[in-house]
Design a binder for these strands. Structure first.
Lengths: 213, 213
DNA sequence: ACAGCCAGAGTTGTGCACAACTGTCTAGCT
DNA sequence: AGCTAGACAGTTGTGCACAACTCTGGCTGT
């Protein structure tokens, strides 16, 4: 059981990352056969992964044509962001977990990685760190449904930042990101998970503002 | 394209309803072969439907054992309800749609169906009407992500009511339900979608209270 | 010259046979 | 009698061959 399910999770996470990091830009045609060969399986298990990605809105399979990476519809993404905004604040309200030493070690690690990023700004490294930091933020709530829901919506919007960064100031974004993590470290140091969630919400909101200019 | 996707949707909705109406109680072993035969297809398309239901947390497939309907974990359901509570209120905040004559016709129809239900109380009819009414409530927002997210969580918790009703007063529940729909009719008549959403939230909250006694 | 059609390549969807796995029951040994 | 090992039935997971479908390119008839 574990091997099949584990592989499914692995392939799903891998393809999702490739899509969200724009290794597969919107419109890319994913070949079931090529991917199956790359991962050393047949089409059957791979098709289940693609079906899941389709349910999540990241790809779209058309009979006789191919499986295409969906494009980023701004009207839809605005709605997703509005929803994410509210959900991110809920992390501090729905079963917020106590701030353990392990959590503090994590946020400190994120701060140092943020400092490294600011020293050597890079879009892809930013996106990867942002994704990991998002997962950390969700780990502050004990509500599994909230975590899963927020994650699902996050991956829907994750591509927007990378498509917007050419029109933005990368170094400035890195500095703002590092600032957010430092603020969060302060909030968590005071044991205030709710405050950390509100900081997250505020920065998501401001990030959307900067991107949509 | 349409035929394959349409059948997938149809089978998915059908099996989901059977699970949520307890035609398949928790623990039921679903036979891929039997279901495929019933719907006149092979196991392959059916397995995609079951995979989706598994992603949604309604069934669980175990290699060599079978595909089992998940049981209702109260700790998890409490978390889902907490989240649903907040989401239901968002219907009135995120892109609330104007109240059209068609909407008023719908709510009036729901009120009359509620009156019929109160005249002849029946658990299964209640559950079915409740499901339809939930869909109507979501149709009041223009935010597709909110609709899909709320629906997903709704189906996770839909089975709780039917399992709790033996310990409750069916006729009283029908009366309360009818009352909610009448209140909502008043709110919508005033064009106040946000008020309708708050009424929904209040009744979900109270319903949970009554069930958990 | 142009319109329509047909054949072909390439892709996803389906069905089937078999592999992999689990739980049970029975036969045989101690 | 009790226990263990092995065969067996039943289930999901995988691989493969083929069906169904779409687009492209060129060919043919007018």
């Amino acid at each position: 059981m574990s091997t099949a399910a584990a592989r499914h999770q692995r392939l799903h996470a891998e393809l999702r990352e490739r899509i969200c990091l724009l290794d597969y830009p919107p419109g890319t045609k994913l070949s079931e056969e090529a991917l199956a060969a790359e991962f050393g399986t047949s089409r059957t298990p791979l098709r289940r992964v693609l079906a899941r990605l389709e349910d999540e809105g990241l790809v779209e399979s058309r009979h006789g044509i191919g499986t295409l990476v969906t494009d980023v519809d701004m009207a839809l993404m605005t709605q997703v962001y509005d929803l994410r905004l509210h959900l991110s604040a809920l992390v501090g309200q729905l079963d917020p977990l106590p701030v353990t030493p392990a959590v503090m070690a994590e946020i400190r690690d994120f701060v140092s990685r943020g400092e490294a990023l600011l020293a050597a700004p890079d879009p892809r490294a930013f996106a990867a760190l942002n994704s990991a930091y998002h997962g950390f933020g969700l780990s502050l709530t004990g509500s599994a449904p909230l975590r899963e829901t927020a994650a699902r919506l996050y991956y829907l919007t994750a591509r927007i930042w990378l498509t917007s960064i050419p029109r933005m100031n990368l170094r400035s974004e890195c500095a703002i990101f590092l600032g957010e993590m430092r603020e969060t470290e302060t909030a968590l140091d005071a044991g205030d998970t709710a405050a950390a969630a509100l900081i997250r919400r505020a920065h998501i909101s401001m990030s959307v503002r900067r991107m949509s200019r």
